[in-house]
Amino acid sequence: MIYPAAGSMLYMLLELITAFLFGGLLLGLHRKIIARIQGRPGPPIVQHLIHTFKFYIKELTIPETSSMPLYVAIVLALSAVWVLAFLVGPVLLGPFSIIIMCYAVHKVSEHGIGLASGSPYTKMGSTRAVLSATAEMPLIVAPALVFFKTHTLVLSDIINYQILHGSLFMDLPLAAIATFILLLSKTPFNPFGIVWGKDIVSGYKTEHFGVIRGVMMFGEILGFFVLLWCFLTIFFGGIFNTPLTIMLTMIGVTIILGFICALTPMIAPYHSVMIQWIFALLALINVLFI
């Protein structure tokens, strides 16, 4: 059997598909755990993937009020951004700054998805997306601390540093917690998910059905996978640096996230922003004992 060479396009494509399937299973597990904690049997673990594929054979309607071609393009941008982040991060171990950019563009896409349909619910969701852009604060703090500590932001160098000097979690625990909050705010049913809160129907996703929702879910699954991977690699790169250990820890972290999401209610918009700020400031305190 011939394996595709690392760095060739086929290899990257296969990795992409693997990550998508694995991420989908993780999110399914996440749902299952929430259901079990709440005393329900819950959907099977493959449900999230089935859900994504189901949308591919459903009728696509584009609202007459929507602003074309932005309505379609912005969803494609959302998934393209996470494809790029996946290729630069887990596959090529490239510069971390590109992943920061991808996260930022993800925020822009959320905002654009909400605005483009013209519905008041999606508009509300996108307004909250702007409001919750304060979640970018841990995003500036965590890389800054990592950079001051390791003097590099290239992921392969960060991993090498951690293999030599031990995991960064020991040095930057508060920054790791802030990044964990960032990760939490990207999982479904999380306490900070004011953007897709059920009080505004489905937030910015309200008007998106059919194929376009499928593409959106594809992007979100990849995004969850990439963020989880980045969190583990940057703060625990010294311990978990083989594919198997990373996959096992990802399952572990997903279980923790499931517990948090199941046990906490949705927080009001301003409180959500405030709590994220508090964690970012906590991470700043970490500067004192670098």
Binding site: L13, V83, F218
Partner: peptide, 19 residues
């Protein structure tokens, strides 16, 4: 670049054809 630019639209249009 090719993967970033063409994977999402190809999934979208393949989905449309499938639908």
């Amino acid at each position: 670049a090719i993967l970033t630019f063409f994977v999402p639209p190809s999934t979208y249009y393949l989905g449309l054809v499938l639908m």
